[in-house]
């Protein structure tokens, strides 16, 4: 990551914990308590080993002190298919992808990984509210330039990007995707990035295998 200079963050979506609607857990508390009683018995799907959806779940397991069974899939799509087909018990996913299935009553949201609730799901609490502040995770998108890009160029890129993000069409498209824009730049973005990197590195270390540089 030393090879990049941050330009700006465009969006940051917290992941949401969903379970099939026919499962007994009504709240995140039910889920965590049951997971404590039956360690390694409740399974979850993910987009792949060390993928975003896996890391979110690992952060939760460590924050709540439970052990879940991981079934990796090759991408977020298959992971969603797996929970809809009832082959696994839980999934951490970006809100946009699961919203239609929550609305149609197939999946039940239990809690979110954000520092505040997701706008589209105001009744779903966050893990922070439930007393697990370490379970914080975002699927985010930002732009970077190669390290060594001159500051005037970076400034210009930032301004252009800010203007682009403010465009009505862009906002409309992102609204349709249910992905709120979370524009951050400069120090703010750096701070967000550092916090995220630290959470992830901790998470990966806890999973047990750390890639050394």
């Amino acid at each position: 990551m030393d090879q990049f200079a941050p330009i700006a963050l465009i969006s940051a979506d917290p992941t949401i914990l969903v379970v099939p609607a026919d499962k007994p857990w009504k709240t995140a508390k039910d889920f965590i308590e049951d997971a404590k009683k039956r360690p390694g018995q409740i399974s979850f799907s993910s987009s792949g080993v060390y993928g975003t959806l896996h890391m979110a779940m690992e952060l939760l397991s460590h924050a709540a002190g439970v052990k879940l069974r991981h079934v990796p899939y090759g991408g977020a799509g298959p992971a969603l298919t797996a929970i809809l087909g009832g082959h696994v018990d839980a999934l951490a996913s970006g809100p946009a992808v699961v919203l239609p299935h929550i609305k149609s009553g197939k999946l039940r949201p239990l809690a979110g990984w954000g520092d505040k609730r997701v706008a589209a799901l105001p009744e779903v609490p966050t893990f922070r509210e439930l007393g697990h502040p370490d379970a914080e995770f975002y699927i985010w998108a930002g732009l970077f330039a190669p390290k060594g890009t001159p500051e005037p160029v970076l400034a210009k890129l930032r301004d252009t990007l800010r203007a682009a993000v403010a465009e009505r069409e862009f906002k409309a498209a992102m609204d349709k995707l249910e992905t709120p824009i979370a524009f951050k730049q400069g120090v703010e973005f750096q701070r967000f990035f550092d916090a995220d990197a630290k959470r992830l590195a901790d998470g990966v270390r806890k999973v047990g295998k750390v890639e050394t540089k």
Partner: peptide, 15 residues
């Protein structure tokens, strides 16, 4: 294709 539909404000599914 699914992503394309969602960009255009269509959410495929039972509804």
């Amino acid at each position: 294709m699914l992503a394309a539909m969602m960009v255009h404000g269509v959410s495929p599914g039972p509804l």
